[in-house]
């Protein structure tokens, strides 16, 4: 069977020690049995390693930061589309999703570019700041949390929390504080990097288990693969992990995706407490950087996402391989100065 030729634009090319999901998503698409995919890389910084991975990324363009607003993003995407003829865009950064969700219908109607993204309401419903309510709505346990806007509020946390507790940034970063002094320290560090509010969350002791999943927006979980981190970097990122046989976790994932009618890729982060109970810590609104493990286990989630974006029916995956490991590695690319010059000056490579 000959493969259909399509062009897919992908962001998140920062394949660094705290990697974005772009390169794993691209690897998955390059291995698609249905599509012959031309990849257009979308980058925010000129040193994103994926820009220079010519075997995976066919052409790259820099795009404006989310803080520039949706109008400048749309203008840039219109230009890129005019040159490349994009069929599907897969944004992979939390911080850019708001803009892409906002533009999704216009991208489709005016430029014929398809996406497979959650609605604005779905996107907002799983924010760390309102995750507790998300847990109530979707019948899944979530550690108690509250937002704070000033380090002066930390002193009064003892009325609602016991130490240790978790200090989290709005989008990224989390640290476990054993004392109020540590909490103030982490508050300052994280808020300086990611802004306010800061989320304070009850600490639950146990093992972290994560699920990469994809929903069709109609209440069906198209695929889900649970993983336990085997090696964690100092930034808390998985450097190695193994797929698990965990029916309870799959059942919870099906329930969350089903109840919320989630559309698109996502990552559910849980703590399995010592008593065997699952607590949802976060729901990330895009594929995780370890999504390629799902492909290795027999579920090509990015390929399924492209099919759904193109309006085609996707049958839910029924099984996956248990006991498959992913082990990340770092790799020094040698890049000609001319390539760096091109992306730095004309924003294309």
């Amino acid at each position: 069977m000959s493969k259909r030729q399509i062009t897919v634009a992908v962001s998140g090319l920062n394949n660094i020690d705290s990697p974005g999901p772009g390169i794993p998503v691209i690897r998955a698409l390059k291995e698609s049995e249905l599509f012959d995919v031309r990849i257009i890389g979308l980058s925010y910084e000129n040193l994103e390693p994926g820009l220079y991975m010519r075997d995976l990324v066919d052409k790259s363009y820099s795009i404006p930061l989310p803080s520039s607003g949706t109008a400048s993003l749309l203008e840039r995407l219109a230009y890129i589309n005019n040159v490349e003829g994009i069929d599907v865009i897969i944004p992979n950064f939390d911080a850019e999703l708001h803009s892409f969700i906002k533009l999704a219908s216009q991208l489709k109607s005016d430029y014929g570019i398809a996406t497979c993204l959650p609605t604005q309401e779905q996107f907002e419903s799983r924010h760390k700041s309102v995750l507790y309510q998300f847990g109530v709505d979707n019948e899944v346990k979530v550690p108690y949390s509250k937002m704070i806007f000033s380090s002066a509020e930390i002193g009064s946390l003892k009325n609602e929390f016991t130490y240790p507790l978790v200090i989290k940034g709005k989008y990224y970063d989390a640290s476990i504080a054993a004392t109020p002094e540590q909490a103030v320290n982490y508050f300052n560090k994280i808020s300086a990097k990611w802004g306010l509010p800061i989320i304070v969350q009850e600490f639950v002791s146990g093992n972290e288990v994560n699920v990469t999943a994809i929903g069709d927006g109609k209440g069906n979980c198209v695929g889900a693969v649970p993983m336990r981190k085997l090696y964690i970097t100092d930034k808390g990122k998985a450097w190695a992990g193994v797929s698990l046989d965990d029916e309870k976790l799959i059942e919870i994932t099906n329930r969350v995706i089903g109840n919320s009618k989630w559309k698109g890729g996502c990552e559910l982060e849980f703590i399995k407490s010592n008593a065997g109970e699952y607590y949802l810590l976060e729901m990330n609104p895009r594929f995780p950087a370890w999504v390629y493990l799902a492909v290795g286990c027999g579920q090509n989630h990015p390929e399924a996402l492209v099919k759904m974006a193109l309006g085609e029916d996707v049958k839910p995956f029924e099984n996956y391989d248990v006991g498959k490991l992913f082990i990340r590695y770092s790799f020094d690319q040698i890049v000609d100065l001319k390539d760096f010059e091109k992306i730095s000056t004309i924003g294309e490579l």
């Binding site: 093992n207 993983m227 336990r228 085997l230 992990g241 698990l244 046989d245 965990d246 248990v322």
Partner: peptide, 18 residues
């Protein structure tokens, strides 16, 4: 029941990943 053990004595618990 789901514990896997190989001929070389390698044991894998698919529920926990240990």
């Amino acid at each position: 029941k789901n514990i896997a053990i190989s001929d070389s004595g390698f044991i894998f618990n698919p529920s926990t990943g240990d």
